[in-house]
Design a binder for these strands. Sequence first.
RNA 1: CGGGGCGUAGCUCAGUAUGGUUAGAGUACUUGGUUUGGGACCAAGGGGCCGGAGGUUCGAGUCCUCUCGCCCCGACCA
Length: 567
Amino acid sequence: MRFSRAYIPTTKESPKDAQLPSHIYLARGGFVAQVAAGLYNFLPLGKRVLRKIETIINEEMAACDAQEVDLSFVTPAELWQESGRIEKFGKELLRFRDRKENLFVLGPTHEEMMVSIVRNRVNSYKQLPLNLYQIKTKFRDEARPRFGLMRGREFVMKDGYSFHASTDDLDREFEAMEAAYKRILERLGLEFRIVEADSGAIGGTGSKELMVLAQSGEDTLAVCDTCEYGANVEAARRAQRSVIPEAPQADFARFKTPDVKSIEELSHFFHIDPYYTLKAVVKRAVYTQGSELVCFFIRGCDELQEVKARNSVGAIDLVDASEAELREIGLVAGFVGPLDQDNIRMVMDNDTRNASSMICGANEADYHFVGVDLSVMGEVVFADLVTVQEGDGCPHCGGKILHTKGIEVGHIFKLGTVYSAPLKAEFLDENGRSQPFIMGTYGMGVSRLVAAVIEQHHDDKGCIWTHATAPYLVNVMISNIKEESHVAYAEELYGTLQKKGIETILDDRKERFGFKMSDAELIGFPFTVIVGKELANGQAQILIRKTKEILTVDKDAVVSTLQGLMG
RNA sequence: CGGGGCGUAGCUCAGUAUGGUUAGAGUACUUGGUUUGGGACCAAGGGGCCGGAGGUUCGAGUCCUCUCGCCCCGACCA
């Protein structure tokens, strides 16, 4: 490609709404342009990067015998009614009617459609397993799109679905997909972590997220400093506490604690470690039908993890409860405890099982119980409710847990029969019995990966594309196009590189040196060959974008040097 | 969806408290010239329904009402 003929609208200034490096540099470098909230046009350079990522995904999927399909983007709402997700998805699902007044939705994900193309066509275990995927634009009417390509409303996603006759076979495929996803991210040149995760509203097990590590990531990860363990904080576990603070000495008693409400005040009042206090967090749990107040009890030194709490009661949402709501059921905010009351549904954190020497609210204003032994409680529901904190022990090796940020670029999990059962997608097993397909699902955010590469690989000048993602690997820059000998050499080099199959752009624009250099750095070509002054000595220079290193090499050695650098 | 902010040239923004020449700057663009290793300089140009609709007024970018859009914080997010 000749730069003089390319459409690469770079700008010196960044759009005012851009915050993240990926957003700023992709916009400034002329890769994408915003159309409306959460909607972006991909310009030539952006499209090339997108296609490169898609190609790598396609290659790795082919290696696993997964087959690419292309499902219609507009899907009949009926399918969504059948699966029951039309309500669950809510306003994120864009719906509209056609001229005949039939209701349709724009696909935000394609479980329903994928199941529908397989059901009634695959009807024997002999036709299984099957792994189908597509790379396609999705639409989710996000309440608040942000961060450029990171969280758009329209985005490109690879979504794959596998169908199996047994859970063993699903397990095998799941591992193969995890390995394939790992290879994809490695080939893209990304630093990432595969972490345990919550399956979300959709349900399922074995949920794993692929996280590209970057400070700007929207997800917090708990990772072990010693072993491979990593998890989204929404799902992270921890080892039993190894160091337990010294227990306070006290017999069971009701104690006057005027205006002592918070855990901090309580531990200060009694001069004890918050470990021995019981924190009560009351939330209104919202279910598909109805809602109720629930009190979650955790140790005072812990924080409630809302996703875990929500899962523990099967709620679709938790909202803060007001003091008035508490009063209505006879509880006093700041003094809620599990003893002597059955006003509210209670869930206790696993770490409070049989806890003793505890201090908890007495369900009466200005009173707490001390010396409480929780093992005296009758039937109690326990669950893991707490947020794993930095410094906690790794559940696998006992190493130390650290927090880090990640960008979710992939999510794989085992669906089982969550969709196939309600949609009645069944096959006959070896015994002639009808069974719903056992399914797995494998998603990867393709357009988000474009942004993730830049979040992880940029500097104050612009993008630094990895070799696998660069729109062009080599930029041959002519410092001054008025120098005929320079132009002649650059043209020849450009031709040679192209013949060798190396994606090259020739910067033959009538611009000054500095302007072209800034563009080269902003766009982020891995290598820029500077054809200029040095040619008088029979030399050219190679700028390595990543290290900013400039190699001066003999003009006849440029191609071989580049090939060496590309490895 | 709650709270806040902003819509003026392709882009980044002045101008709006107090209505009044022909609506500005920087940058980008065009032409000519000088330059030619880090977004250079000089000169001359083109480019605007001041988001939209209605109103007040002799007169509205500026005041009032209503709308639409975009951004930020939060809630939400397979």
